[in-house]
Nucleic acid binder design. Structure first.
Lengths: 121, 121
DNA sequence: AAGTCATTTCGTCAAATGACGAAATATAAA
DNA sequence: TTTATATTTCGTCATTTGACGAAATGACTT
């Protein structure tokens, strides 16, 4: 029950759901997600930690960056089913399409450039 | 997206999830659910209205009482999948078993008696 | 037509949530 | 070893949420 509620609470914020849908395109580092959302890095980090706590995403550190990704088949059943449900329900939504479009642009740009950009404005 | 978030927000409170699991036993009226939860009737009513708004439950008025039930196959896909996911994840949990046990006792008692009982203490 | 009763709506209040910026942390670069 | 940089943690604040009781609603009974 506690684990299940961690999942539903994680899914109860639209921006966290957007993260899950964005990660279907492949793993992303915090600054790429921050760029996608136009939120403060600390805000994005908090959202990611809530998703991570619910085991809906996994993290990996490499060089200067922390990457988050969706879990594989070995994830708990409740997690896998939640992720499938989210994707099935929203993959075709306008919001998801817009995010994926913006994400494609972000992925074209060098990581270091994106991160540095977030310092000034 | 809006409909989907209505569902996830509805599922983000454990008491609302408990309602969905209880309704697997068959339709229940507000005072029976109130009895199960030991909350104020107004609180239960609010929870039910949130579930109803997300289309996770249906309502029916008969004689003096309002009955709530789970929807049938004709419900939206996202709703059906959510309900299946909840049930699959929690049907065997300790909390669910305890609720069902208490519910069986409640169902043995006459509706009018239960409702009247909620006036005094 | 008035009264009763189950439920809902409204207003209030404490607690939780989600946003931010500043400071702390940890790792890579110089 | 110092500096730079990406991320996280912390404290603050406005908003939302979930609880309650009181009052309103709406449908049977009488």
């Amino acid at each position: 029950m506690r684990e299940f509620m961690a999942i539903t609470k994680a899914l109860s914020d639209p921006n966290r759901v957007r993260v899950l849908l964005a990660l279907r395109q492949g793993e992303l580092c915090v600054c790429q997600i921050t760029e996608l959302f136009s939120f403060a890095p600390s805000t994005v980090s908090k959202h990611l930690s809530i998703l991570h706590h619910a085991h809906l995403i996994l993290s990996r550190k490499s060089e200067r960056w922390v990457y988050y990704r969706l879990p594989d088949k070995s994830a708990p059943v409740a997690v896998r089913e939640a992720l499938d449900w989210v994707h099935k329900s929203l993959a075709k939504s306008a919001e998801t399409k817009a995010d994926i479009k913006k994400l494609k642009q972000i992925l074209k740009t060098d990581l270091a450039v994106i991160c540095r950009r977030q310092k000034c404005c």
